[in-house]
Design a protein around this nucleic acid. Structure first.
Lengths: 244, 244
DNA sequence: TCAAAAGTGTTCTTATTACACCCATGG
DNA sequence: CCATGGGTGTAATAAGAACACTTTTGA
């Protein structure tokens, strides 16, 4: 921040928040998109977002957007990056701060609002052209998720409170876009002692019912304080030949 | 991005870029700060930054700020986060996008400008109170650097072109705020095959002269394309007891 | 009885850690 | 000849990767 002369000259840009809301359902990683009802980009899919009001912090605005659309509060929400190319918005200079949220898709309830009936969960693999630079924003948030999921136990934000180990594995596979070995995955996850075995099993499935677990947040916070670091390595196969 | 009615209402905020410029000298990680010459926060240290002009992209503005101060271009510069609390700036609603750069401190040349003679390299350990929320911004950038240095070979941006393994180790120690084992560090770094042994040695030192190396950028790009991933683990000592 | 997914151990390989002495130079 | 930092290897331990069969349920 430099000198403050001629400030007025600069006070004519607007900024928005855009929110990449991730959910996980039927083995698929999904994102909540809005079919735009007006210009610009009318009829195209885009991210939920809105202008930041004068009297609200960025994080507050991102939470507001999320709540208006999903009814959810106090869920995982983090800033990712800011996009401010001169021509990114046809109407004027609009900088957008991108956030991403992780929600339990079964808690998502349609809120009565003008955009709600234009919202849809789209599998991340099926996302096509998006309005503005939203494709780039989505990519950045997806990359951040990939990174985060390996160093912090955020995956659980996307699952119901009770889940099976296979569901957890499929979640990781969807996010990391790779296959994981069942036995190694279980061994690793269970060795962290972050799951509570609920001594319950699935019901009504046409195969051996799986045990249900929940994430032990208290334990995690405790271990964190002691210096524990959650870490799931990316499987780097066949690197030997490059390492000489 | 939602509806576009009443746009004018929103177009009255300003935004800036602030740049955390890191350098490495005499075994210390340093940051380039400016002693503010005017209100607000006159006389306090702060980050170099300035308003983003109407017709420039964010990245461009960050590069401009860096160049005006140091004369440097085409150096490592990345966006870290955006800070936009309502009251972070006493003059009005000013959102700032924080960037951080890594420069070779010996290439830094004072540029003739009004702020240059108020600039100084301060050891990261000696930074005290800063203007605005710049302390928070610095912290965020330092954390990002810690993270980045373990997953991408960005450390070399902070060293002269030719460096010794001990200098490299001290750099990592300064950034990670930890001690590393000399033999293990060398083994790990050399096993990546990313350094070119220049077959030169230090001159005029009062001890056995060290070999000089340079970073092999071509090799790195090549390995990257093949799926290689640079990785320096954080040394997590004594975690066994937490893992059961 | 079949289909479908759950659950379970061992061996091999690779990476990480801990650790101590001799070497080359300038003063 | 002394002080200073440079340079080197090995053994023990821990983590990761590869891999196949039995179990439980509903239909």
């Amino acid at each position: 921040m430099g000198t403050m002369e001629n400030l007025d000259h600069f006070f004519k840009s607007a900024f928005t928040v855009d929110n990449v809301i991730f959910g996980f359902d039927e083995g698929d990683l999904k994102v909540l998109l809005i079919k735009r009802g007006e210009e610009p980009y009318e009829g195209q899919w885009g991210l939920p977002g809105y202008f930041v009001n004068e009297n609200e912090d960025l994080d507050y605005a991102a939470n507001r957007v999320l709540k208006q659309l999903t009814g959810l509060q106090n869920v995982f929400l983090e800033q990712v990056a800011t996009f401010g190319d001169v021509n990114r918005h046809p109407t004027g200079r609009v900088i957008t701060v991108a956030y991403f949220s992780l929600i339990k898709i079964n808690q998502y309830t349609i809120q009565p609002s003008s955009i709600a009936n234009r919202a849809a969960w789209i599998s991340i693999d099926n996302v096509e052209e998006l309005a503005f630079d939203h494709a780039e924003i989505l990519r950045a948030c997806f990359n951040r998720l990939k990174l985060l999921v390996r160093t912090r136990p955020v995956g659980f934000e996307l699952l119901p409170r009770k889940f099976t180990l296979t569901e957890l594995q499929h979640l990781y596979e969807a996010i990391l876009e790779t296959d994981l070995d069942k036995r190694n995955f279980r061994k690793k996850i269970l060795s962290m002692n972050l799951l509570i075995d609920l001594d319950e099993t699935q019901e009504g499935v046409a195969h051996r019912p799986a045990r249900l677990y929940k994430f032990d947040k208290e334990k995690y916070d405790e271990l964190l304080a002691e210096g524990f670091s959650f870490e799931l390595k990316e499987s780097r196969r066949k690197m030997v030949e490059h390492m000489g």
